[in-house]
Amino acid sequence: MKDVDDKFLKNPDTEVPLREELRPRKVTTPDGQEIDIDPLRDYFCEAKPKVHPKAYSKIVEDFYNWARANSLWILGFGTGCGAIEMRPLMTPRFDAYRYGIQWRPTPRQANLLVISGYLSVKTLKRAIRAYEQMPQPKYVMGLGSCTINGGMYWDSYNTIKRLDDYLPVDMYVAGCMPRPEALLHGFMELKRVIKEGKGEGANLYAENFDQYKANQKAVIRDWDMPDYNW
């Protein structure tokens, strides 16, 4: 049996219409005024991300990096089966808290986004939003072979194969699924990277912003959010 149907060609890009509630339109306010609203522009800041320079002095920057490495706050956001491997880290057996790792419920207070496993296109959209809302400097960790090359979802029609096409990844943890020990090791390696001052994923993202956006929009067909959501 042949694996690939050579004749199959995917549907060339058809525009997905914007959802009705997100279209720009005229609304009549209760007191009779007519106003134009554009939900995508009204609620979000549209400025592109900036490249933030390091601190001027190397000592200060090293000191900051030490603090960043020892206070990793993870966004509590689970995408695939790997989300279940993160939970044991809070338990007495693994206890990631002793390394200064904590879970935060809001992207505004998190520094580390752990993509825990396969990422469907629908989830990718949410992951991008969460990533962009995190304050700089921010780090991304890809968990499991799904984020590296697709893993067992290598022929799936709606999961992405390479995470670093869409988000700047600082650290990959291989495995399917990686055990919590592997995760802890990944955190330690990430700490080392940050302390060396190489954890500059957010600046990379800002520099190659157009490239990343093009990749993202190629797979997310119904792009119904602003280009950059702060």
């Binding site: 603090a67 206070s71 002793r98 200064g100």
Partner: peptide
């Protein structure tokens, strides 16, 4: 459990955030 100086590190980290 956390190290006793964790609060200081967190505080410093939050001040050191760039954006």
């Amino acid at each position: 459990g956390i190290p006793v100086w964790q609060n200081y590190v967190d505080l410093l980290k939050n001040i050191a955030l760039r954006s």
